[in-house]
């Protein structure tokens, strides 16, 4: 017998073969599901045109004069004379080629409008995401390690404030203090060039990051507290391992596993959910565009933005799940 409780040892494949194949299979499966979802979402988005009050021609005309020529041009352009499902098919086919029609506000192709604003939104979202994860995880870990101390109590109360302050309040507050009173940072605009942009988007990014930071912090602290109580931490200390190794490759590595999934959700919300921040700081991003288009009933733009939101949520979710697989061997290899 000895070591050979044979049946108990299940995996005997070479080290590097484990995981890779199963991850590829998993991602492929997820991509299929994602495609199916995308079809359903795009159909719903297409239906927006018909769900909006009034008839589609009027919607698509906007402020332009209604003449037989414009009506027939729009009918041809949007295939409104074709059967409903064919209309959808043709619309979706063009959307697949990034042709979403023209904006009624600017008469420019929707894709151009989006392309002009997406980099700003991406920049702002990733900036805020960086701030949120770094401060959230950093402070969360600090609070957990110093559980019950003043630091911990301060951080925990800050979480409550951060979670319950809406962006337009914290945004206005930041503007007042840092832009108007102290003149440290600019109050609006997006700047040119990387560093100027970083400079201009700092206040919006902070305002945008506050609730997400609080959210991540709360979860990171809870996860860390759970991990610090584990036997394997005691056992690592009992073996005389260095405190840094225990903190990083034992406590943090394990505590981050649940936090990673959550960060994916936060990222998508930061990129496309920055409506209030972009309005408060007059940043010309996707959120800004969405509000303008909603006011102008610019249906083509709304459709495009909605699809963009859906795709980014799906993509970041997939990313988070794959990360989860990579960081947790128990999920990757199937716990027995």
């Amino acid at each position: 017998m000895g070591a050979g409780d044979g049946s108990a040892v299940v995996w005997a494949r070479p080290r590097w073969a484990i995981g890779g194949a199963s991850i590829r299979a998993y991602v492929a499966r997820r991509l299929v599901v994602l495609a199916v979802l995308l079809v359903a979402v795009s159909f719903a988005v297409f239906c927006l045109l018909y769900l909006a009050p009034g008839n589609p021609i009027d919607m698509l005309l906007g402020q332009r004069p209604r003449t037989p020529a414009t009506v027939s041009a729009l009918t041809r352009q949007y295939n409104l004379d074709k059967p409903f499902f064919e209309q959808y098919w043709l619309w979706a086919w063009r959307a697949l080629h990034l042709d979403f029609g023209t904006s009624i506000q600017t008469s420019l192709p929707v894709a151009t409008e989006i392309k002009a604003r997406l980099p700003t939104s991406l920049f702002l979202g990733c900036y805020a995401f960086g701030l949120a994860t770094m401060t959230g995880i950093g402070l969360g870990v600090q609070a957990a390690v110093r559980r019950g101390t003043l630091v911990d109590r301060f951080v925990v109360s800050a979480v409550v404030i951060g979670l319950s302050t809406p962006v337009f309040v914290s945004g206005v507050g930041l503007l007042y203090v840092f832009a108007i009173q102290l003149h440290w940072l600019p109050a609006f605009g997006k700047g040119n060039g990387f560093f100027d942009e970083l400079w201009h988007l700092t206040l919006p990014a902070i305002a945008l990051a506050v609730p997400s930071t609080a959210y991540i912090l709360k979860h990171a602290r809870a996860a860390m507290l759970g991990v610090l109580e584990q036997d394997y931490i005691v056992f690592a200390r009992a073996r005389g391992l260095s405190p840094w190794r225990i903190l990083f490759s034992y406590a943090l590595r394990n505590a981050l596993i649940p936090v990673v999934t959550m960060c994916g959700l936060v990222l998508s919300s930061l990129i496309v959910g920055a409506v209030l921040t972009e309005m408060t700081f007059s940043v010309q991003g996707i959120g800004h565009l969405l509000v303008q288009s909603a006011l102008a009933k610019d249906i083509a733009v709304i459709q495009c933005v909605s699809l963009l939101v859906a795709v980014s949520v799906m993509a970041t979710n997939l990313l988070a799940d794959v990360l989860y697989l990579l960081v947790d061997p128990r999920i990757r290899l199937g716990r027995r």
Binding site: Q230, Y232, F235, A238, S249, R253, I257, V327
Partner: peptide, 15 residues
């Protein structure tokens, strides 16, 4: 001094 604990299922770093 070496120390081993009771529960082998929780004593080793799972990852």
């Amino acid at each position: 001094l070496g120390l081993i604990l009771q529960d082998p299922f929780t004593m080793l770093n799972p990852i």
